[in-house]
Amino acid sequence: MGSLLQVNNLKTGFHTEDGMQTVITGIDFEVNHGEIVGLVGESGSGKSVTSLSIMQLLHDTPGEIIDGEIIYKGEDLLKLSEKKMRQYRGNELSMIFQEPMTSLNPVMKIGKQIIETISLHLNMSGQKAKQHAVSMLESVGIPRAKDIMNEYPHQLSGGMRQRVMIAMQISCNPSLLIADEPTTALDVTIQAQILDLLKDIQEKTNMGILMITHDLGVVAEICDRVIVMYAGRIVEQATVKEIFNNPKHPYTKGLIDSIPKIGAGLDELYSIPGAVPSPKNMPKGCKFAPRCEHVMDICNLEEPALAMENGRSSRCWLTQEQSQQEGVVGHGQ
């Protein structure tokens, strides 16, 4: 089966004092069935806004989707009514957040929260819903699942809360799970457990996962394909092997080289100079040009397109010039 989620030319902006500021400038990508796609970027890259745009959870923020399509199983989510979208959320598309405490209701017993979700979407009655809830908790590796049903979120540790959150979000067999930094707040040993759990669930249910993270280690561990974002744009997209073995975009390469690696024995780390540009002061040409060590004249004048080549794409004049010389340029946009 083809793509599960297809995002076409998505543009999202924020209302600010100085009018609308575009923070995501027309991005395209897809997530297939049974695939874990990593959406990587630093703060300010627009990765979280992308996930909220897909879920259409921007009302609590000054954000608004300006343009584009979000095709889920052949249907444009942006054209759905809020009522229909609400039925989709938690049922077809689910989302887990970095800090589960903020997404769980602190004054409601865990069992009740899961049962509520189940009865809302699965049309199950009391006892059956309860059994399903317990089995979901067990399936995410929670010991004493029956007791936990009667506990409150604050009685659990961070790792346990994240498991509860995962159990809740997968209880209605969603086809797509969006995980926004799900392990960032957790300790490494717990992070490893949660990553294993997500991988297992994905293999069992064949759901698609969009994994939003800043941690390239997590990406390498769990993802099949990677999308790298910078300043509200996709700058590179490739399979996880290609990204790590042969990054095309200088930003991707810089990111990978910036991570300290155990046993590398380097005295100095590679570092990308400068910082992410603010939406107010975006450079004119390539948005990465001011920090790039391969910058050329054209980079400051014109922004390169996201060019496709052998199933991977990159937004860089460097690779595009090379391929133009070789005469195999294809435009992704």
Binding site: I190, A192, V219, E221, K241
Partner: peptide
């Protein structure tokens, strides 16, 4: 063993610890 390595060719040896702190 728990640290995710930024290299997909290295597969983490899973000595996953049971339980929580």
């Amino acid at each position: 063993a728990s640290i995710p390595q930024p290299d997909p060719s290295v597969k983490r040896e899973r000595i996953s610890l049971k339980g929580e702190i």
